[in-house]
Structure formats: structure tokens, C-alpha cells
Design a protein around this nucleic acid. Structure first.
Lengths: 202, 202
DNA sequence: ACTAGATAATTGGTCGACCAATCAATAATA
DNA sequence: TATTATTGATTGGTCGACCAATTATCTAGT
């Protein structure tokens, strides 16, 4: 290829994107430097020029995916005016990502598996969850301020939102016939509205 | 070792258990026939005597884990008398498993990653989810019959229960400081009670 | 009871394929 | 010319699968 100065960050990004595609296609067990190099249309050697080793590449891929999801969720939530609309935006952004760009969610799942056995990856994972909890927590706090959300521990409520979205996204990823985007979104909205709306239904 | 006739099923089980332990310890990427053989205290060759290939071993491990979880959930749910108690029993059984025998949930996560790229494993996964949905659906249907559960689509409600339990179990697996068993159980019970109890909280 | 196959269970080693990482050499830019 | 970027070949090692040989157990005939 034609090396150009200042290409560093671009090449790196190119390799990370290729890693994500390979990971989605073949899984971590089938992820090889050769395949990533072929997918990125570069030589094998250069992968180790930009990344110390394979695990570093996986971590970069995970960081990129979580950052993209964050950006997408934040962008959709920005347009919403009240707490309920904001929550709905978060729900739709997460679930849409799980359906439309299946790669993302596939990478997440592969990544979880490795994060259980690699400290670096585990740290990345914890950070991603913490950021998501914070993002959701802010939305909930605003809702509580305007009286649309009942008095709940924001941290716990964020964990509930996150957990439900994770679980539904898994179902969306594994069996798209049984679980559709519209159904998942409707369910999530109903469950969370009932959980968060003031008043005791019992 | 000393081969004995009728040892077949025992050896097989022994290998499956060793596979589960190895999977929990090293992940699928680090799962090798050599390690499983060492863990099971048998020779490498015999693994291929009982299983066609590595994927078959993984599938057997996944089947064993799901069956164990099923049995455990069913056992705890049997003691409950009304719908609410039954739901609570299911919640506790699932979440306790996620905490106590971490191996189980680890195997699930590793398994998901591979199931995304292997048809056989994907089929096993679908079956497991279908069985879980059915089990939960039955509990919900009984609750509806006695008027303790509002009118909801049982299939959808089961998906919600399953999704929430999956999501909370993930959090329990990844960060036991932030999410504890008692907190997860309390959250799940609150959310699901509000979702399923008759009456409109809005 | 004893033994001679037949069968089931198990071993240890072999083999080709493939992998991650390294490196000397080279090309492009500053 | 010095630095950065990139290549392609090499290397040492490991992996999954396969297989010939061996041992244990069962069965039937005597």
C-alpha cells in the first residue's frame, strides 16, 4: 500500500472497523490476524504496528462499539423534551441498534465472553456500564424533578433500565422472529412506565 | 485408566463437567482438548471417542447447564402456592444460580458468543429459551386465572421476565460490588409486580 | 469353571494446518 | 537523509483431529 504520514489514526480506525466486522462474522474464536488483515486490505505485519497484540485489538473494537452506541443514544435523547420522551428515545436507540447494526450487539456478546477472563477487557466493560448507568440516571433524575417519575433510587432504576434493554436486545439478536423491534420497544416502554410512574398499582 | 463396561455415560458426564469448569476458567478461546482432558483426568484421544468434535462438547456443556438451571428453578417453584410466590421463586432461583455457581452463567455467555456463528449451538439456544418461556408462561397463566395477574399476553410477559432476569444476571456476573443478589431480587420483584399487578398506575 | 474371541473403552503419539508475533527489508514522506 | 509507514516471509509453538495399539469387560461354547 501507499504509506502516507499522518495516516496513523486513519489506518488504526480502518483496522478497528475490520476487526468489528470479522468479530461479527466469525466470532472471537474465529478471529485471526490474517482475516482481519484481509478484511482491512492491509498486510498482517501492520496489525502489530498499531496494536501490541490481539487482545489490544479486541479492546479497541469494544471501545469503538460502546462509544458509537453512546453517541447514538445521546443524539436521539437530545431531541426529547420531557422525561418520558427521553426514556423512550433511549429505549428506541438501544433496541434499534441491536436490530439494524447487528454487528454491534454481536461484538458486545463476544466481548463479554472474553471480558470474563481478561482484566483489561473487564475494565472496559465496567466503564461502559458505568457510563450507561450515568446517562440513564440523569434522565431519570430530571423526570423526578418534574414529578413524572416516582421516588426511586436513580442508580437502581438505571440498572433496571439497562438490564431490561440488555435482555431484550439479546432476544432480538438471537431470534428475530419471536422478538421484533416494535414489540421489544413496546414492552420496554410499558414495563418501565409502570415501574417509574408515581402511584402504587397494588 | 481402567475401562469398565457401562462406564460410557459416566465418562461422558465427567468430560462434560470438566468442559464446564474449563470454559468458566479460560473461556471458549482458551478451551483446548488438552486442558479438558487434563481437567477430566483422561487422555486427549477419548474426547473424540465420546464427542464428534469440539463444538459437540460445547453443545453438551450448554445442554447440561441449561438442564441444571431448569431443574433448580422448577424445584424451587414447586413449593410456592400462589402466582406471586411462584414468580418470586423463579426470580430467586435464577439470580441465586448466577451468584452462587458463577460457572453456570459464564458458560451461558461463552455459549452465546459461539451460538451466533454455529447452527447447532443456535438451535440449542433457541430450545433453551423456548423452554424457559413456557415455564414462566405457565406460572403467569395460573396467576391470571386467580386474578392476581392483569390481562397480558403470556408470551410477551414471559419474554419480559426472562429479559429482565438475563440483564440482571449479567450485571451480577460482571460487577458483584454494584449489583448484589438481594438488590437484584428486590428490583426484579418490584418491577415485575408493578408490571403484572392489575390496575393502571398511570 | 475356563477360555477364546468379540466388543467396548482408553491411551499416547502423530500429523498437517494454522496461529500470533517478530523482523529485516522497503517504500513513501518530511 | 531521517523518520514514519508498510510489507511479506519466517518462526516457534499449539491446536484439533485422527489412528494404531492396548487393556478391560462381556459372551458363548465347552
Amino acid at each position: 500500500m501507499t504509506p502516507k504520514l499522518g495516516m496513523g489514526p486513519l489506518r488504526r480506525e480502518q483496522i478497528v472497523r475490520a476487526t468489528i466486522r470479522c468479530l461479527a462474522r466469525d466470532g472471537y474464536a474465529g478471529l485471526t490476524m490474517k482475516r482481519v488483515a484481509a478484511e482491512a486490505r492491509v498486510s498482517q505485519g501492520i496489525l502489530h504496528y498499531y496494536f501490541r497484540d490481539k487482545a489490544a485489538m479486541l479492546a479497541a473494537a469494544a471501545l469503538r462499539v460502546t462509544a458509537d452506541l453512546d453517541r447514538r443514544v445521546a443524539a436521539e435523547a437530545r431531541g426529547a423534551r420531557d422525561a418520558r420522551a427521553r426514556l423512550r428515545a433511549v429505549i428506541r436507540a438501544c433496541l434499534e441498534t441491536a436490530v439494524e447494526s447487528r454487528d454491534f450487539w454481536t461484538v458486545f456478546i463476544e466481548f463479554w465472553g472474553e471480558a470474563l477472563h481478561d482484566r483489561r477487557l473487564a475494565a472496559v466493560n465496567r466503564q461502559a456500564y458505568a457510563r450507561a448507568r450515568r446517562l440513564i440516571g440523569v434522565a431519570l433524575a430530571r423526570g423526578r424533578a418534574t414529578g413524572h417519575v416516582r421516588r426511586v433510587n436513580p442508580e437502581e432504576a438505571a440498572a433496571v433500565v439497562l438490564g431490561l434493554l440488555d435482555g431484550l436486545s439479546l432476544q432480538l439478536t438471537f431470534d428475530r422472529r419471536l422478538m421484533t423491534l416494535s414489540r421489544a420497544a413496546r414492552l420496554a416502554e410499558t414495563v418501565l412506565a409502570r415501574y417509574l410512574t408515581p402511584g402504587d398499582p397494588r
